[in-house]
């Protein structure tokens, strides 16, 4: 019983972090129909940057997101203007090719500058846990979860209470309707891409503490994120949150009762099952090209 409660608690903590990471991916797809395969590489880029900041200055890795988030916002803005705006109006598969290429470039640059070695930021609380009754919650996971929830809260506020957010939601739900009320397509898309990238600023900083990583880890991460977003429904934010919760739970439960080796496979199995039986996911638009 304790095992089960422990696994569920850990699963939800991880799910919260996954939710934050997936929110950016689904937001970008929702507004632009761009499947940003480079989202995983953005995470690793930030993790690397966080590790370096922590290593050089001793700053807390999760707090380092105060630096990495605005950086990634700017990075996303520039990337959209220079790169992704060029494929506006093309099919979603074109965006997969372009962003996959982008991910490879980031991976290559990281290989050259940071080396092809596993890294992990290990702040002082790294091995400490909070104890709640019989279960123990690793501090790093709790802090990561709290940071993720805080950012999701801000994201929710921006999307529902500000004009920028309304414009983004309008463009997501009905692009021509948005144009009719004067929402500019390019500006909104660039903003959405910048915000989607900014979520990796926090996500990557959390990742640097919770998981060892090296430049090619982005393949693993984008697969997880795609699993979550496909399960929740491409473009649906609530879908991404629920998908992240489900997969976080599935992963820890598999690790607890099956084996660690199988736990990452859960994501791939979910992608295949969802695409076979419910291609639109729980909440969203269909991923298949002919319906996008």
């Amino acid at each position: 019983m304790t095992h089960l409660v422990q696994a569920i608690a850990l699963g939800l903590l991880i799910g919260g972090v996954y939710a934050l990471m997936a929110s950016g991916l689904t937001l970008i797809f929702g507004v632009m129909r761009i499947i940003n395969i480079a989202q995983g590489a953005f995470l690793i880029l930030v993790a690397m940057l966080t590790w370096w900041l922590w290593h050089e200055t001793g700053i807390d890795p999760i707090l380092a997101s105060v630096v990495t988030t605005p950086l990634m916002f700017g990075f996303g803005w520039v990337a959209y203007r220079l790169l992704l705006s060029r494929i506006r109006g093309s099919s979603a598969s074109m965006s997969v090719l372009l962003t996959f290429g982008f991910a490879l470039v980031i991976e290559g640059v990281l290989n050259i500058t940071a080396g092809n070695k596993f890294k992990s930021a290990t702040p002082s609380y790294f091995e400490e846990s909070f104890r709640v009754g019989a279960i123990s919650l690793p501090k790093a996971q709790v802090f990561g979860f709290l940071a993720a929830m805080a950012v999701l809260g801000v994201l929710y506020f921006v999307l529902t209470r500000t004009w920028t957010g309304r414009a983004i939601r309008a463009a997501t739900q009905n692009p021509s309707g948005a144009a009719l009320v004067g929402v500019g397509a390019t500006g909104t898309a660039a903003l959405a891409f910048a915000i989607g990238s900014a979520t990796t600023g926090v996500g990557g900083s959390i990742l640097s503490v919770l998981y060892p990583f090296f430049p090619a880890s982005h393949y693993d991460w984008i697969s997880r994120l795609l699993g979550i977003v496909v399960l929740g429904g491409m473009g649906s934010l609530p879908g991404a949150l629920i998908g992240a919760g489900i997969l976080g739970l599935a992963e820890t439960l598999t690790a607890t009762y099956g084996s660690l080796n199988w736990s990452t496979l859960v994501f791939y199995i979910v992608i295949m099952v969802v695409l076979l039986f419910r291609p639109q996911g729980l909440f969203g638009a269909k991923l298949r090209e002919d319906t996008v």
Partner: peptide
């Protein structure tokens, strides 16, 4: 005001 689908359905 276009022919149809001008509104944002989940707003």
């Amino acid at each position: 005001v276009p022919q149809s689908h001008a509104l944002f359905p989940t707003m």
